[in-house]
Amino acid sequence: MRLFMDARYTRTDFHDGISRYGSSLIAAVARMSPAVEVTLVISDEAQLNLLPPGLPWVKATDPTSPAEPLLARQLNPHRPDVVFSPMQTMGSAGRDYGLILTLHDLIYYQHRTPPRDLPAPVRLLWRAFHLAYWPQRLVLDRADAVATVSETTRTLMRRHRLTSREIRIVSNAPQPVVSPRDPELPPEKSLVYMGSFMDYKNVETLIRAMAHLPGYRLHLLSRVSADREAQLAAVGRAAGVSEDAVLFHHGTSDEDYAALLRTATALVTLSRAEGYGLPLAEAMAHGTPVVVSDLEIFREIGGPDGGAARYVPLGPVPVGGGPAAPEGDGSPSGLAARVLELEAPGAFAEASRQAVARSAAFSWDASARALVDLARELAGRRARARRRAEFTASYTG
């Protein structure tokens, strides 16, 4: 089977979420079976630096190009059996192959601000696209099957009838960890946040919580604009948080990220909405517990409350039996209380062990098997349909 995998969303400098998803899935598929011939579809040869080496590739136009709807004209001559894209926007007009499109989440229907690195015209179209569900239905029904990364998203897709096609889960996953941290070693009084600084991420509440966690330090790892950093620093000052309790890293390497996770008390996030929550799985793979907002997707990843994960309710949280806390979504004191639970004798060690066990539910190898199984089914269906058409043509001729 000739499986073409769309790698045009791969970054050329460092991975973001879609880039890492695509490249990790490609690597897992490429090593699983010699019966699957993997070919990369790239738009920039610099993308090969962050993709598995040695795989054949074809170059196509950038996915934001006006020529994207006619992409099949570029791929048809290479005769793929099935093409997989880690996004749902791949052009398909006139295709002569099976097509699997991916919808990761429905988050942009709640928060319509598009990714900032997209060209202005694409950002405008992106915002307009998410004003109603019917454009998404038209896009997804162009495929033979649709992939998504979680049961939570699949349930939402069915609820909103986003496609008439079969929906399969090809999950996100953490990178393999050979040796998780020693659960018996006391953690440092540090907390790790990996994510963007968009409004719905609710980073303000994480910062306010540091006023209730004396001796702890919050590491904010992602890149942040100067204006947004100034806003968040002002939030901390207003809440009485010392300057050295919050550290902006302005981006970090995979190695430094892993090192911080392996010494921290917990990974934290109070996001109001999330498509998946890969940092949770990454933290748990290293044996680091997570303290997170009580979202359905986080429950799917983190498991039962009090095990690998501790959940903080969203919305106003009563404090001491009194009126609702005024801080907005989640409560700084509520987050702090859940972090401090890990200081109880034996609590961190048990949570660390459960985190490693929980992370085993997610692996790129399992995701690769799910994708290849689906691709083989589609290739088989198309081959049978082609034979029937040939037979009918010869019989009627």
Rank of each mutant, 00 (worst) to 15 (best):
A28Q: 07
F391Y: 12
L106P: 00
E377R: 14
A385P: 04
Q354I: 00
E282I: 01
A309F: 03
R208Q: 14
W57H: 15
A143Q: 04
V177N: 03
P313Q: 11
G315R: 13
F391N: 06
D62V: 03
L314R: 08
V38M: 02
P313R: 11
R387C: 01
I207K: 06
T263V: 04
E68M: 12
R228Q: 14
Y276A: 01
S331Q: 09
G195S: 03
D365L: 05
L140H: 06
I297F: 07
S190V: 11
E151N: 09
A385K: 13
P332A: 10
F197I: 10
G303T: 07
A285S: 13
T39H: 11
P174I: 09
L221M: 15
L40S: 02
P121Q: 10
Y97D: 01
H212N: 05
F248E: 04
S222E: 03
A355C: 02
V291K: 03
L106F: 01
V192K: 00
H78Y: 15
F391E: 13
A30I: 07
R154Y: 09
A285G: 09
L25M: 06
T252D: 00
S253Y: 03
E350L: 13
E296C: 07
Y257P: 00
Q74N: 07
E188H: 09
G275W: 06
S394N: 03
R79A: 13
P66F: 04
S196M: 05
A368D: 00
A344S: 13
G321I: 14
